[in-house]
Write a protein that binds this DNA or RNA. Sequence first.
DNA 1: CTCCTTAGTATCCATTGGAAACCATGTTTC
DNA 2: GAAACATGGTTTCCAATGGATACTAAGGAG
Lengths: 123, 123
Amino acid sequence: MRYAYDVYEDRCPTRLVLDRLADKWALLILDRLEGGPVRFNHLRRDIKLISQKVLSQTLKKLERDGLVTRTVTPTVPVTVEYALTPLGRTLAETAAALTHWAEHNMDAILASQAAYDAARTAQ
Amino acid sequence: MRYAYDVYEDRCPTRLVLDRLADKWALLILDRLEGGPVRFNHLRRDIKLISQKVLSQTLKKLERDGLVTRTVTPTVPVTVEYALTPLGRTLAETAAALTHWAEHNMDAILASQAAYDAARTAQ
DNA sequence: CTCCTTAGTATCCATTGGAAACCATGTTTC
DNA sequence: GAAACATGGTTTCCAATGGATACTAAGGAG
C-alpha cells in the first residue's frame, strides 16, 4: 500500500470519493468549470440532457466535498455562480484526462463494439 | 472543439464511453488488472463488496468495448482470466490517476465534508 | 395582468444496483 | 455413494437512484 488509504478496501473512505468521481455528470461539470465560474442555467444548457434535479444534487455534493464554491449574488433574478476550488482544480485536471481519452479513443471503442455485436448476432 | 467528438453534446458517442468510465467498479477493475491477468473469483475477492452480478456485467461491457480480454481455460473447474488489451492499458493508466488522486486527497475532502455538515447542523 | 427570467424543489415512474439463491461441472471428503 | 466445495456465472427480488415533468418564489418587461 503506497498511501494511508486503499481503494480496494470496502471500509476505506476513498470508496466514497470514487463514488463521487465515478459519476459522468460530476466529471462533466468539473470539466466545464475549468474555464472559470459558470452559472446554474448556463451549466444546464451546456451539458446537454442533464436534468435540473441531478445538476442541483451533483453541485451540492461537489460543494460539500470542497471541490466547488457556490456564490450567490442578490441581483434580480438572483445569480448563482459555481467555481472550482484549488482542490477542485487539481481534480478537474485529472478528470480532463478521462474525457480527453474518451474523445481520442472513441473510434476504437465503437469498432470494438460493432465487432463484438456482429460476432454474437451472426450465431 | 479540439477533436471530432465533444462530450458536452448529448448525441455524441463519447457520452456512452463516459458512462462506462464513470463507473466506480469499472475503474476499480481496470486498476486491478494493471498488474496482469486476474481470474473472476480473484477479482471478486480483491474488490471488496462487489457483487457477482455487477462484476459479471461490468466485465462483459469492458470486453465489448475492447478494453479487456476474456480467456477461458478448460481446466477443472474451468478458469477464466481477464486481462487488459493495449487500449485498456492506456485507459487504466488514465484511470489510475483518479484513484491515486482519491487516495492522496482523502483527508482534505473528509475535512471539507465535516465542515460543511457542521455548518448546517449548527443552525 | 400576464409572461419571462433566475435557481432551484417536489413528484412520479423507469432503470439500475445490491443481496441472496440457484445452476452446471467435476473433485475431494466422509 | 451422498455431502460439501471449487469454479464462473445467471436469476430473482427489493431498495435506491435517475430522469422527465411540473411547480415554486421574486421581480422585470410588455
